[in-house]
Computed example of a mutant assay.
Amino acid sequence: MAKGSLYLIPVPLAQEAEKASYTLLHADIINHIKEYVVENEKTARKFLKEAGLKRPQQELIIHDYGKHQREKINYHEIFKNAVAGEDIGLMSEAGCPAIADPGSDVVAEAHKRGIRVIPMVGPNSILMSLMASGFNGQHFSFLGYLPIDKSARSKKIKDIEQISQREKSTQIFIETPFRNNQLLAELLKSCKPQTKLCIACNITAGDEYIFTQSISQWKDTKIDLHKKPCIFLLFAG
């Protein structure tokens, strides 16, 4: 018997983002699949409803791989039906699953079991911010979170600035939203005046903000990033 497939289904980045495109792209798959692995069940069920789910939600099988469930997740149970031939879906809380997202562990387990993995088209804040930055899109690195410790973070910023200048590469990183302003302050303190910084904030939301300028120009710019999802991109090449 042929095994099922694992579909990687993107979720909108912002609550008010246009839903029509997602419905058109994924409605057939969403109404085909009845079993999902999700990071946030409430978010996932809301998205499925808005994306045109016709199946009654009580018929769905939902596996939670959220923050408090990952250490005790039962992959045998998750992939039991897929091994038997049923297709399943994977969704993160927002954006593309498995990109800066713990869903990559689920994908790795699918490969171990010989289950085909099918990525679906959808929004990704990292790539969208790179597209809009004006920086090198052929040579870039995503670094995830920088160190929390101030001295270690300052050293890391100077290191990646040197790498960017030497390799003419774009350096991309993120921070927990409530620490965005502290990270920006450290970037302004540690980087050279001519180094360029792009801040991409609340991508696809009504107050989306994506702007690129030099560190010296950012020092004269008043901006509050507190509790807003942001992507930071550095280019010193």
Rank of each mutant, 00 (worst) to 15 (best):
Q58L: 09
P97E: 06
G85Y: 04
H139G: 11
N40V: 05
S129N: 11
I29H: 03
K46C: 01
F178G: 02
F232P: 01
F235K: 04
I61Q: 03
G4M: 00
R153N: 10
A17G: 15
Q213Y: 10
I199P: 00
I99P: 03
Y209H: 14
V37R: 00
A200C: 11
L234T: 01
K150W: 12
Q138H: 13
K189C: 05
S190G: 06
A82G: 10
N124E: 07
S141I: 09
L187D: 06
E208S: 09
R55W: 01
V117S: 01
G4E: 01
P193N: 07
R70W: 04
G4P: 00
I215V: 15
C230I: 09
A205W: 01
I148S: 14
A27Q: 11
D220A: 11
L146A: 09
Q182S: 12
Q57C: 06
K67W: 04
S125I: 04
E71S: 12
S151D: 14
Q165Y: 10
A20T: 13
P147I: 13
A132E: 09
K155F: 08
G114R: 04
Q69C: 12
E93A: 13
H139V: 13
L234R: 02
E161I: 11
I9L: 14
G52S: 12
A82M: 04
K228M: 06
K189W: 08
G52Y: 11
R179K: 12
V121A: 15
A17L: 03
P12V: 03
A132M: 15
S216M: 04
T176C: 06
K219Q: 15
A27H: 07
D87L: 06
S190L: 03
I174M: 14
T204N: 14
K19H: 02
I231V: 15
S190H: 02
P119C: 12
F47E: 02
A152Y: 03
I30R: 00
I78H: 00
K196T: 10
R153P: 04
L197W: 07
A84M: 09
M91V: 08
E41C: 08
Q162T: 13
P97H: 08
E186G: 05
T23R: 12
C191W: 06
K196R: 13
K168D: 03
F79M: 09
M131A: 12
L8P: 03
S190F: 02
G85D: 10
K155W: 02
S169Y: 09
R45G: 03
R113E: 00
S125H: 03
A17D: 13
G122I: 09
K189L: 15
P229I: 03
E18V: 12
E161C: 05
C201Q: 10
A100F: 05
I62V: 13
L143S: 13
A2W: 01
G137E: 11
S104Q: 14
R166A: 14
N81F: 01
F211E: 11
I78N: 00
S164Q: 08
S164G: 08
V38A: 02
Q182K: 15
I118F: 05
E175H: 07
K158N: 13
Q217Y: 04
C191R: 02
S129F: 08
K72E: 06
D105H: 05
D101G: 03
G206V: 15
S133H: 04
E86Q: 13
E39W: 10
G206E: 15
I172V: 14
G95L: 00
T195N: 03
